[in-house]
Design a binder for these strands. Sequence first.
DNA 1: TAACCTACCAAACACTTGTTAGGGAAGACT
DNA 2: AGTCTTCCCTAACAAGTGTTTGGTAGGTTA
Lengths: 203, 203
Amino acid sequence: MPTKKKPQVTAAAARRRELLDTAAEVFAEQGYNATTVRKIADHAGMLAGSLYYHFDSKESMLEEILRTFLDELWGGYDAVLGAELGPRETLEALVTESFREIDRHRAAVAIYQKENKQLVAQERFAFLAESQRRFEKAWLSTLERGVAAGVFRSDLDVRLTYRFVRDTVWVAASWYRPGGQHSPEEIARQYLSMVLDGIAVRT
Amino acid sequence: MPTKKKPQVTAAAARRRELLDTAAEVFAEQGYNATTVRKIADHAGMLAGSLYYHFDSKESMLEEILRTFLDELWGGYDAVLGAELGPRETLEALVTESFREIDRHRAAVAIYQKENKQLVAQERFAFLAESQRRFEKAWLSTLERGVAAGVFRSDLDVRLTYRFVRDTVWVAASWYRPGGQHSPEEIARQYLSMVLDGIAVRT
DNA sequence: TAACCTACCAAACACTTGTTAGGGAAGACT
DNA sequence: AGTCTTCCCTAACAAGTGTTTGGTAGGTTA
């Protein structure tokens, strides 16, 4: 028996997540560039240099925050896409899943939205670009399937509609506060009601 | 006669606008905090210190950029609101006007969206908060008028709808490129088609 | 021509930034 | 008991930050 070393690595991992959570909070609130490592350390109750015991650099914190978020996001998305639902049901499930992710990873989503544009250019954050492509593909194909099936209007520019739906969903992270009066599912329901009655073919 | 001094002050003002335009471009692309005055000076073909002949500080450049944008924006909005149109026509006009402003002040809009949250806290940028209040009031009252008149659906949370419409319109600045295949009016038309058929009462 | 103004440059300033190196206290393990 | 490991602190570093000061080429005015 390797003399219980497990509890220590999980304790270390827990601390790591804890620090990443507070870092994500500060990044989301002040912006990545405006956030100094000293501010993060303050919020964590330690000094700037101590952060480097846990992480290689400020940038690697950002990377881990975004990677963790995207991994979870695609876990949910792949489950939806693999269920092979109809286009309308797929869209509903994707939107609902998105609001759940906003609920769970509010800070990470806010960071993603603010910094994505500048980060994708760096090779370190190439995974952002790949995620973007998969994201676009999933949404566009769902919309096109819906148009082909006569469930969504055909007189709209699909790419414009895609951007419309995408932005509409994700900007919610900028004002959403967990524990507010609306649950993620309730917000999703209302959003879908607005979006679908514009996209769905009139009956 | 004060010995023609006019041409000089207008030439100076023109140069000022020119520098503010390039500054706005860099701010929008890289983010305000990540933008150094040296980068701005580079893009303008001069040295960092030379900028201080024209402006007091980096922050005052940002302030002037946002003030100019908001002044023009409210010029357009007030014209619309003063016309006393019906709620649906008001909403259409506001959306169309917004896309025109995005077309004209793409960089400023992008900056506003990215930095607004952190700036409103500073007393120097209190005008942002006031603009925000007027903005919300204009949109909310239009939506409420529409609900009261039976033109907009009454089963939706008005505040949620407001945020939905607001965000949907302004995030367009993040992907919109002037001179693209869609004119501002065309984009407005398509957006309105999507939004209204979700908001308008079914016929 | 001489005085002046405009618009920039050159060089430095004080300060903040991310990051590193060495040390030490408290507990875990043998 | 003593040794090791974990986790943080202290103190400093070099690079980059916004800004200031003094100077100056070139055109305008008197």
